[in-house]
């Protein structure tokens, strides 16, 4: 069984981004870039399924600029077998990525696609669901536990009220939540090995996909800042302030 794992190159989660003064976006020049943390969880899950003998091949895919190659190498250092880069400088929105992934699924015929539930840059939380819709496949989003059987998977999902377990037929799309696993650190020998793994580069046109953005960003601004508060000396003062000043007790 083949597993496809889409991985996105994003600003590292530890970086607090700055909005550009001209309001056109956030400044990502000279900022540390990493693999989207939810995608790391997705790669880890796929590699564990391979190690468990459930999957035979793990293919990592990234859509975006040339530098996404680094993200693919990271995925291969965790254990993906090969990488596919769909290279474009166009600002890719989730629908466009889902269409690129659909074209790759038609070609590669994976049984499972494991996506991160959301990218921490655009916070969209859409691509997995969209791909699943375009393929006419079932979806199991926000997964905290995945068990793959023959022709089906049982997935526990994190939902607002607690947990929900679904049984879905394969092929299917699964999206990861934080509790699914703890991704391993890539070891130096594995990082070296990853450099030799196959990496294919395609263009959206090779896949016959129109990636033109549907949404235009008119401006990007900083949110209103909270005005600085005060430090209180003790619990008594805190209670006094909450009662008489903030009037919330």
């Amino acid at each position: 069984m083949k597993i496809l794992v889409p991985v996105k190159r994003v600003v590292d989660y530890n970086v607090k981004v700055r909005v550009k003064s001209d309001g056109t976006g956030v400044d990502i020049a000279n900022v540390k870039m990493s693999m989207n943390p939810f995608d790391e969880i997705a790669v880890e899950e796929a590699v564990r399924l391979k190690e468990a003998g459930v999957a035979t091949e793990v293919v990592a895919v990234s859509c975006g600029v040339g530098a996404c190659q680094e993200t693919l190498r990271t995925a291969m250092a965790i254990g993906a077998d090969r990488g596919i880069l769909v290279e474009t400088d166009v600002d890719l929105q989730p629908l466009a990525v889902a269409k690129l992934l659909k074209a790759l699924c038609d070609k590669e015929q994976p049984q499972i696609v494991i996506c991160g539930k959301q990218a921490i840059d655009d916070d969209a939380n859409q691509t997995g669901q969209m791909l699943s819709a375009l393929m006419g496949w079932p979806q199991a989003t926000f997964a905290s536990k995945v068990a793959v059987g023959s022709g089906k998977a049982t997935v526990t999902r994190e939902i607002d009220g607690g947990l929900e377990t679904l049984e879905i037929s394969l092929p299917a799309v699964i999206t990861t939540d934080l509790r699914l696993n703890e991704p391993r650190y890539a070891t130096l020998p594995n990082i070296m090995k990853a450099k030799k793994k196959p990496l294919e580069t395609l263009k959206p046109a090779d896949l016959g996909v129109d990636v033109t953005p549907r949404l235009t960003t008119l401006k990007v601004v900083e949110p209103a800042k909270r005005s600085a508060g005060v430090m209180v000396a003790d619990v008594a003062q805190l209670v006094e302030k909450l009662k008489n000043e903030a009037k919330v007790l």
């Binding site: 549907r214 949404l215 008119l218």
Partner: peptide, 14 residues
């Protein structure tokens, strides 16, 4: 909001 709410984007849909 984008980037964990560190920026607010105004978007127009076609």
């Amino acid at each position: 909001p984008i980037y964990a709410g560190n920026a607010l984007a105004t978007v127009k849909s076609a």
